[in-house]
């Protein structure tokens, strides 16, 4: 029983990581109806920026917020320069462009910072916390708290601010929104900026666990996809819960199902994605997309 509980708790911790990247994916999907295949790589790139700052002796929390701001700007610029020209193109063009962004970020990071793994510090104490028989790392608790804070901010932003409302409107019905005076393109730009900022938070929370290297996000992104698919691409809360479910499932399957172990991790994510898409394409908490023909 203790082993089971321990696995569930570490599953929740891993799930928190997936959830934080899934939030960024959902953010862009909400704002622009696009899945950004480069989300993970953009997060990795921002994390490298943070690493460079830390190396230059900037204190952690200054670096943290500076990186989030930089990532936000990067997201705005990418949307303006790269995504805007294909905004109304078929979905295939947009997918291809975000794949282009994926390989560019990956190779430029390798170019600048090399492919050697780099340790990345955690802002939380390294001493584990004992809760009865279960041991939890302080970083795990910190990272989940950060994810939940981001979720709350996101919820409040969409629910209570005029800009959030305008963004939802722009994604939902661009033509009507434009007619009522919302600058739709600017809303899309803002969506990319915010998603990049959330991605940067995810990257800085992940890096202490997996160590920083250009390919660190590959496996995490596919799990984030699984999380967002499971929770529903239209629901931020769903994405977080989806991330936690996926994280717990991954840990339990790895421990108890002998023939899968840890060697087929990515295959488990693949199976989750395909099963959810077949059984309930809108995810657990997503809203069904209704199209008029």
């Amino acid at each position: 029983m203790d082993i089971f509980l321990q696995q569930v708790v570490s599953g929740i911790a891993t799930g928190g990581i997936y959830a934080s990247l899934a939030l960024a994916l959902v953010m862009i999907y909400q704002a622009t109806d696009v899945v950004n295949f480069a989300q993970g790589e953009m997060a990795m790139f921002s994390t490298y920026l943070a690493w460079s700052m830390l190396n230059a002796g900037v204190p952690y929390w200054v670096t943290f917020f500076a990186t989030v701001a930089l990532a936000f700007l990067l997201g705005l610029v990418i949307e303006r320069l790269v995504i805007r020209p294909v905004e109304s193109a078929p979905i295939l063009s947009i997918v291809i462009v975000t794949l282009g962004l994926l390989v560019i970020h990956n190779s430029i990071a390798g170019w600048i910072w090399s492919y050697i793994q780099k340790p990345f510090p955690s802002p939380f104490p390294s001493r584990p916390v004992h809760m009865g028989p279960i041991i939890v790392g302080a970083h795990d608790i910190g990272e989940i708290s950060v994810t939940l804070i981001v979720l709350l901010l996101l919820f409040a932003f969409f629910r209570y601010t005029p800009v959030g409302l305008a963004m939802r409107a722009a994604a939902h019905n661009p033509v009507s929104s434009r007619l009522s005076g919302i600058r739709v393109s600017r809303m899309l730009m803002l969506g990319w900026g915010l998603a990049a900022a959330f991605g940067a938070v995810a990257g800085m929370m992940v890096a202490p666990i997996v160590t920083l290297e250009p390919n660190m996000m590959g496996g995490i992104q596919i799990y984030a996809f699984a999380a967002a698919t499971l929770g529903g691409f239209t629901s931020p809360g769903g994405a977080v819960l989806g991330g936690i479910i996926v994280g717990v499932a991954e840990n339990l399957v790895g421990t108890y199902v002998r023939f899968i172990g840890t060697e087929l991790k990515l295959t488990v994510a693949l199976a989750i994605i395909i099963i959810v898409l077949l059984v309930r394409p809108r995810g657990l908490f997503g809203r069904a997309v209704v199209r008029r023909v």
């Binding site: 060697e263 087929l264 693949l270």
Partner: peptide, 26 residues
């Protein structure tokens, strides 16, 4: 199953497939 997946979701599923291949082979 791909029949049921529209544009973006098919891209997602096949992307996951591509990532999982080396693991399955090993």
């Amino acid at each position: 199953p791909a029949l049921r997946l529209e544009g973006l979701y098919l891209a997602l599923a096949t992307f996951a497939l591509a990532l999982a291949v080396p693991q399955i082979l090993k």
